[in-house]
Design a protein around this nucleic acid. Structure first.
Length: 832
RNA sequence: GCGUGGGUGGCGAAAUUGGUAGACGCGUUAGUCUUAGGAACUAAUAGGGUAACCUGUGGAGGUUCAAGUCCUCUCCCACGCACCA
């Protein structure tokens, strides 16, 4: 029976009562309860909540409420990651104060968040733009600086010549132009504040093993860090031009390359340098075709890294005229090229190219007519055996082998060395170190991961707490001067110099504190810094003396479960893990890993199947739906759409009415209360309790809801006892917190339903009296039989053979074999 | 291009992890009730076929008594790729 309910009224009433009684606050530590720290990624206050925020916060709230009803003390905080580009852009565009814009947004979003009715721990909240928050961000930065983790390095940025400033990747259009000025963006190397995350690369990979994360997330992190083991090998450079014998020649006579395949050294028939490689510019005088080289370098600066690495595109490059290198193994003189498929940021920015055994080198060598020399053979000449995969090649293996030996087919695997002097016939894996030793190289690892560039030439961020003495040496701002406040007398319109450089107040403050001639750092921090430690501040958000005490951390850390978006898999998650480890080394935290468990939620797409974005105009505003159908319905519908951890769902409001109907039925179920209910209802109730609990633990809220629907459908027909209804309301309470509270109170309870215990399933009540078993004949389903769960194979077979659907296919005499899977299926095999 | 995930009815999905494919919900169709319905209730609903049956989980092969699930190859889609957060 449907019974309409006034969602607006119910929500208002209970939200007020919850707030008044403070039942969602965590309060002080309760030693009688186990702790559970549930973290959701804090939002950027962009202006208003969209449906993605609901998905991100309201659905995990089911888990939070369930855990509380299971007797845990649960921390479920929320805050705002409020520094960032959008505030600054809004400020530039509409001439607003970024601080006011941000604070207005936060205030509005807080009221919207309250309308969700989540069990947020509002007593533990924070905001990255609050000086009481960012003073700790600055304190940690100064510690990092003192310990060599933060340093002044060099990084590549997007430079817009039109705006005369650095611009974000986001502001670069696909064609490589600036979204604001339309100018072609140039890659420019500039001095940058960096954090030495690469020093932690091995720990970041190795510590993944112990984490209870989905394997795919761990793997994505491993790939992102990209550890590869190989060798550094020096090649001698020769200038064959006029300057060769010049004492004053600036030529650097060796170049170091990184390779994962030192075993192929004899096959290195040329070298390739990244166009940005320092040696190229330094050797201008030795390079015969300098103008050609220079124009190629200029062209490279306009290319995105992704395009440079695109293997489907034709390789380009320029040979350095007048320069050669000596292969340290074979002693041969080989040509040197520059090409954009080699990146300055990876390895040493230079490679030895082995075109017979590397696809990219092969494509390049073919285009430039360079010798391709086979040095690894998949054929063992001694034993006359093909090695591993060769035996599986569908083609004529003799032909394939001949092609490999002739250098007309690439072979990228291990094998036996050939054309490699004294190493011929040896195993490619075993010979690596010997070759490296012969040429005076060394084994090492390199990483795809680069140090984290944290400085930004922007206004709306945490000021980097560094000042420079009159000699230009950097010093940290002492702790007593923190927070090192963001000045407000700033014009942040882009003019080519950092906004903070225009602040008189900052300049004056610096001189007053440190003395004449001292100048402030004018860069602010990347916002990923703020979100690298916020979960620590939640724990101790009012503490003026510590970012978070070790005692508090020991209570709550590591985070039991971290819900977030897949887009943060590599960057945010890696940065914050690094931050935690860096803090551990400084003895500021108690744990080496911040997140015990991580779940990436699916992505809610716009109705058109694209990612929601304001520019595409496909953003769904949840407020209207909350008004018409209610917060419980919106929340439950989102939970019902599909598994939480999973794929992407185009948001379609069509189904929301079904959830509303369901809740109306739940509300009307009190009209079906009976003195005695059928046993099957009791069984079903206990099955539902067990299933809902299990599904919440595994974030399959969708099937939990479907199980509750099945129970309600049944109970409406047969009736249920008040005890059962009472239990069911507690089961649904985490999903529909407002309505369940209303029903609970109507049932005469004084205490909040959310303060009660989640029901326990009685395992004695879980077994059905009869089960249905599918009967197959030769693997095809031909009928079903009903039997007791304890029936034997013989009894089931006998039943099947009296069933006329089945007997048509399988007469007893024809049965050759019987396969019985208890409680599931019976397969009768007939025939010869 | 590289990395990660995914492809099952008209739609969102489920499938006890190798065992009755499509639970649950939306939508649709027919009927009931109603002054009325964009309400509620009842029934049907993967496709083909009058039926018996046959076909069916992106595609092609394979393993198995049995494949959405395992193996090989392949096509397509989404997300991330370091200054958006």
């Amino acid at each position: 029976m449907h019974k309409k309910f006034d969602n607006a009224e119910i929500e208002k009433k209970w939200q007020a009562k919850w707030q008044e009684s403070g039942i969602h606050d965590v309060g002080l530590r309760d030693n009688s309860k186990e702790k559970e720290y549930v973290l959701v990624e804090w939002p950027y206050p962009s202006g208003n909540l969209h449906i993605g925020h609901w998905y991100a916060f309201a659905v995990p709230d089911i888990y939070v409420r369930y855990k509380r009803m299971m007797g845990k003390q649960v921390l479920y905080p929320i805050g705002f990651d409020a520094f960032g580009l959008p505030a600054e852009n809004a400020a530039i565009k509409r001439n607003l104060d970024p601080k006011a814009w941000t604070n207005d947004n936060i205030a509005y979003m807080k009221t919207q968040l309250a309308s969700m009715g989540n069990a947020f721990s509002w007593d533990k909240t924070c905001n990255s733009t609050d000086p009481e928050y960012y003073k700790w961000t600055q304190m940690m930065f100064t510690k990092f600086f003192d310990n060599g983790i933060a340093y002044r390095g060099k990084g590549v940025v997007n430079w817009c010549p039109g705006c005369n400033t650095v611009i974000a990747n986001e502001q670069v259009l696909v064609d490589g132009t600036c979204e604001r000025s339309g100018d072609v963006i140039e890659k420019r190397e500039m001095p940058q504040w960096m954090l030495r995350i690469t020093k932690y690369a091995d720990r970041l990979i190795d510590d993944l093993d112990a984490l209870n994360w989905p394997e795919h997330i761990k793997e994505a992190q491993r790939q992102w860090i990209g550890r590869s083991k190989g060798a550094l090998i020096d090649f001698k450079l020769n200038a064959t031009g006029a300057n060769e014998n010049d004492e004053n020649s600036t030529i650097d006579r060796t170049i170091s390359v990184f390779t994962t395949r030192p075993d192929t050294l004899y096959g290195a028939t040329y070298l390739v340098l990244a166009p940005e490689h320092a040696l190229v510019v330094q050797n201008e005088a030795n390079i015969a075709n300098w103008s050609e080289v220079a124009s190629y370098i200029a062209l490279t600066k306009q290319k995105a890294e992704q395009d440079r690495l695109d293997n489907t595109k034709e390789k380009t490059g320029v040979r350095l005229g007048g320069i050669t290198a000596t292969n340290p193994a074979s002693g041969e003189e080989i040509p040197v090229y520059i090409s954009d498929y080699v990146l300055a940021s990876y390895g040493t920015g230079a490679i030895m190219a082995v075109p017979a055994h590397d696809e990219r080198d092969n494509a390049f060598a073919k285009k430039f007519g360079i010798e391709i020399r086979n040095v690894i053979s998949p054929f063992d000449f001694e034993t006359k055996q093909h090695i591993n995969w060769m035996t599986n090649v569908g083609e004529d293996s003799q032909k394939v082998l001949a092609e490999i030996h002739a250098g007309t087919r690439i072979y990228e695997y291990k094998g036996k060395l050939t054309n490699s002097g004294e190493f011929n016939g040896l195993d490619s894996e075993e010979v690596k170190e010997a070759i490296v030793k012969k040429v005076g190289g060394r084994m090492t690892s390199t990483y795809r991961l680069r140090d984290w560039s944290v400085g930004r030439q922007r206004y709306w961020g945490v000021p980097i707490p560094i000042v420079y003495d009159p000699e230009g040496k950097a010093h940290t701002v002492p702790k007593k001067h923190l927070p090192w406040l963001l000045p407000e007398d700033v014009d942040f319109k882009p003019t080519g110099i950092a906004p903070l450089a225009k602040s008189e107040a900052l300049k004056k403050r610096t001189e007053e504190i440190f003395g004449q001639g001292w100048t402030p750092e004018v860069e602010t921090m990347d916002t990923f810094v703020d979100s690298s430690w916020y979960f620590l501040r939640y724990l101790d958000n009012h503490n003026p003396n510590s970012l978070s005490t070790l005692e508090t951390q020991k209570d709550w850390m590591p985070i039991d479960i971290y819900f977030g978006g897949a887009e943060h898999t590599t960057m945010h998650l890696l940065y914050s893990r690094f931050w935690q480890k860096a803090l551990l080394d400084l003895e500021l935290v108690s744990e080496s890993e911040p997140y015990k468990r991580r779940i990436n939620r699916g992505l809610i797409l716009g109705p058109d199947g694209n990612k929601m974005s304001k520019s595409k105009g496909n953003v769904i505003d949840p407020d209207d739906h909350v008004k018409t159908v209610g917060a419980d319905v919106v929340k439950m519908y989102l939970a019902f759409m599909g598994p939480y951890e999973g794929s992407n769902y185009p948001f379609d409001l069509g189904g929301i009415a079904g959830v509303r109907r369901f809740l109306e039925r739940v509300y009307g179920l009190n009209e079906h209360i009976v003195e005695v209910e059928p046993k099957e209802i009791t069984t079903l109730l206990h099955k539902t309790i067990a299933k809902v609990g299990k599904d919440i633990e595994t974030f399959k809220f969708n099937t939990a809801i479907s199980a509750m629907m099945i129970l309600v459908n049944k109970a409406e027909k047969t009736g249920l006892t008040e005890t059962s209804y009472d239990a069911f309301i507690r089961v649904i309470a985490p999903f529909a917190p407002h309505l369940s509270e209303e029903i609970w109170s109507n049932l005469g309870h004084k205490e909040s339903v959310h303060m009660t215990k989640f029901p326990e399933a009685d395992y004695n009540l879980l077994t059905d009296e009869t089960i249905t078993i599918g009967v197959q004949v030769n693997g095809k389903l031909r009928g079903t039989v009903n039997a007791s769960p304890t029936a034997t194979e013989q009894e089931i077979t006998n039943l099947a053979l009296t069933n006329k659907d089945i007997i048509r296919y399988a007469i007893p005499q024809s049965i050759r074999k019987v396969i019985y899977v208890p409680g599931r299926i019976l397969n009768l095999i007939i025939g010869k």
